[in-house]
């Protein structure tokens, strides 16, 4: 059987919010190392990769590798029934066709369980090559969410340019042009508030704002976000999930035709 108990159930609620705008359904692949999920959005422009390590769970048991196809809309409805303080347990029998979510209130005076049907998803798996990125930018996640929200008003594409001076986000459209320049933080007193840029070589790429805005639904998971860029390869937007894992979004760039 499979059973994973997470004391900080709110993390799973936030993970759902981070996935459900982009993906309608996905396979949750469970092994003794933990839970992994990889899926493309419907338009195959972006890819989401989630990793939750077994060590991050209060209790984790996976007798046999298990892939659970789930409708994320339904799963989101179920997780909305959990309070932020609840302990959440996911469990399933081997080769089961349902999964059960158990929500325990902190003082155990209320225990809820929800059983959901699983789906048969023949999802193809993509190989993501290890890449030594030309630029990596770490910035406050709220700052990145604000930039995406503000600039997407000006155009459906955003140009992200990284040089040794700093990183510039730009968008242009009918109403005009917006540019936001972030300099590398001088002193890094509060780690999570800092803007840290590592540049091997300058990079400038164009991306669709609507996907960037979908990615920022993960903002509540982490105080900082890391962007990784190299010429002509997808952007990586990574949010750490406490000490249990991460969610990574890959976005294919827009290219000159």
């Amino acid at each position: 059987m499979f059973e994973a108990r997470l004391l900080q159930g709110s993390l799973l609620k936030k993970v759902m919010e981070a996935l459900k705008e982009l993906l309608n359904e996905a396979a949750w692949d469970c092994s003794d190392a933990g839970i992994q999920l990889q899926a493309m959005d419907n338009s195959h422009v972006s890819l989401v990769s989630l990793n939750l390590r077994a060590e991050g769970f209060d209790k984790y048991r996976c007798d046999r590798n298990l892939s659970m196809g789930m409708n994320l809309g339904s799963m989101s409805k179920i997780l909305k029934c959990a309070s932020n303080e609840d302990i959440i347990t996911i469990k399933a029998q081997d080769n089961a066709d349902t999964v059960t979510f158990v929500f325990e209130s902190p003082d155990q005076d209320k225990v809820s369980d929800y059983e959901m049907k699983l789906m048969n998803l023949d999802q193809e798996h993509l190989g993501i090559p290890e890449t030594d990125y030309a630029c990596t930018i770490r910035l406050p996640s709220s700052e990145f969410a604000r930039i995406c929200r503000d600039l997407s008003q000006f155009g459906e594409s955003m140009v992200i340019s990284c040089t040794k001076e700093g990183v510039r986000f730009s968008a242009t459209g009918d109403i005009g042009t917006g540019n936001i320049k972030l300099a590398q933080s001088a002193k890094v007193d509060k780690e999570e508030e800092a803007v840290v840029i590592e540049m091997q070589e300058p990079v400038s790429l164009t991306f669709a704002c609507r996907y960037l805005n979908s990615f920022t639904k993960a903002t509540s998971l982490s105080k900082s976000v890391q962007l990784s860029m190299s010429p002509e390869v997808p952007l990586v937007v990574e949010y750490k999930i406490e000490d249990i894992g991460h969610v990574r979004y890959y976005l294919a760039p827009k290219i000159e035709d």
Binding site: V45, S46, L126, T206, P234, I255
Partner: peptide
């Protein structure tokens, strides 16, 4: 004109 590329172009199915 910019056109949106697909993620398949960069990552191959395994």
């Amino acid at each position: 004109k910019e056109c949106q590329s697909a993620i398949h172009k960069y990552f191959s199915s395994v």
